[in-house]
């Protein structure tokens, strides 16, 4: 554990908590892509299957349980409790265009051809693109509420901080994992445009609005 890894995890934790609290307190999931949330649930479940096979630490197990729990709570709130506020029309990204290529890629490029390993690899690939339906929704409506922007910023920062963690581990521990690194770079790059708008607009107190 190093400072980059810890900050990354806390940022990730902050993101999922912001999202659940936002939906719960405003009694609305307007502006949130249910499709991205479904993809994240798939990511957590396929990656954290090792919860039942290997024990790493109390920290590791608790975080995994929280991420899976928060993810399912979000889906429940969006598709059941506050269903009426879910903005279907703007959430029109076709997730099969993300699922199919990531499944194929995981079958082709992995470290070991075992069920757990392929699913882990698939979750890494899928996570790198899972935010696309949400970003697509923001670009379609042309704006995002501040709280949604904070959520996206925390969620995007998490993998960026992991990149720093991997650079650190490469030098300090002679340790690297190419699949995670390349996917992490892709994932972080996808947020760049959003990061720019967040820093230049939201942090200056303005609403995140895309240029017409």
């Amino acid at each position: 554990m190093n400072i980059f890894r810890l900050s990354g995890d806390l940022s990730h934790l902050l993101a999922v908590i912001i999202l659940v609290l936002k939906i719960w307190t405003t009694r609305s999931c307007a502006g949130i892509s249910g499709k991205s949330q479904i993809l994240f649930a798939i990511v957590y479940v396929t990656r954290y299957l090792d919860l039942v096979t290997t024990f790493v630490s109390v920290y590791n197990t608790s975080m995994k349980v929280i991420f899976i729990g928060a993810s399912f709570a979000t889906i429940y709130l969006m598709y059941s409790k506050f269903k009426a506020t879910y903005d279907h029309n703007h959430d029109s990204f076709r997730i099969e265009f993300l699922l199919a290529p990531t499944v194929i890629l995981a079958l082709l490029i992995n470290q070991k051809f075992t069920v757990l390993e392929v699913l882990w690899t698939f979750s890494i690939y899928l996570e790198s693109v899972a935010i696309l339906p949400q970003l697509f929704m923001v670009s379609k409506t042309g704006e995002a509420e501040s709280i949604t922007s904070h959520y996206l910023f925390a969620l995007g920062s998490y993998r960026g901080l992991y990149l720093l963690n991997w650079i650190y581990r490469y030098y300090a521990e002679d340790h690297y994992e190419l699949i995670a690194i390349v996917s992490g770079i892709v994932q972080t790059v996808l947020y760049c445009d959003f990061f720019y708008l967040y820093i230049t607009k939201v942090l200056k107190g303005k609403k995140l609005q895309l240029p017409a």
């Binding site: 090792d50 630490s57 963690n165 490469y170 995670a180």
Partner: peptide
């Protein structure tokens, strides 16, 4: 350098 799994990560 070892290209090993980062299964201790999240």
């Amino acid at each position: 350098k070892d290209n090993v799994q980062t299964k201790d990560e999240l």
